[in-house]
Amino acid sequence: MSAVRRFVLLGVLALAVLPTPAEAGRRPFIWVWDTEIVPKGDVELEQWLWVKSRAPGVPERTSNYWVWWGPVFGLTQRLELAVPFQVLATRERTQLESFDADLRLRFNPRGDDSPWQGLLRVAYHHTIHTTQPPRLDANLVQSFETEGGLRLVLDLGAQVGLPALRGQEGPVRLLGTYAAGVSYPLIEDELRASLEAFGEIPLQGIPGGQHHFVGADVAWTFGRTWVTLGVMVGLTPLFPETPQFMPRLIWAVVL
């Protein structure tokens, strides 16, 4: 058989056959937060790349490219901490945007067999170079998994911008977010396909309108790595200021 086909086959088989880690498809969604956390004592390196493309309603706003990069530590059977930094790249400049501390708390310990699981996420977003104020995020996530592996996740969150934390002037900004997703395992422990919807509603102090997206993505686990790739499509006919596309790639490797 030709070398190319062999290589492809090898790749396919390797993907198909190499043993899977204990956690599989950890983040089935690109936007919706999920209730699974890293096992205690494990460290993952996550990297997100995403783009906020232009909105038809705000033609002068250019696309933004983001990189989120950081380790994720499993602290306890319930607690997970991520400490990433974020980089924003626009057409004019690329700059280190923020350092974050992202804490996720599961209500039930890992290994709990209940189909209902909940998670609370609290994150502090410390901006560095932008005019954006430091931010505090909070998300409440509830998931339900059926016997067949179908997963339904609802995620409600709020982002509070506190300029005072840096001694800046300005009002407190409040952004409400909601996200919901449905994920289905195509190949158990290996491939999941998902649909999600996400929306941001500025509540206070944030210019601009609401953004609402729907998207689809696919999450793939192989070996010590998992990848989730998807795209959110802005509902621009309804909300013209919503960026048209928001694709995101999440990639993580267990150390």
Binding site: T20, P21, A22, E23, A24, P39, K40, G41, D42, G74, Q77, P109, R110, G111, D112, D113, D189
Partner: peptide, 16 residues
Amino acid sequence: KFDAGKNRPGEDYTET
């Protein structure tokens, strides 16, 4: 499949 995580002496992990 399960991964109990690193458990120190005295800690435990339950799986169904």
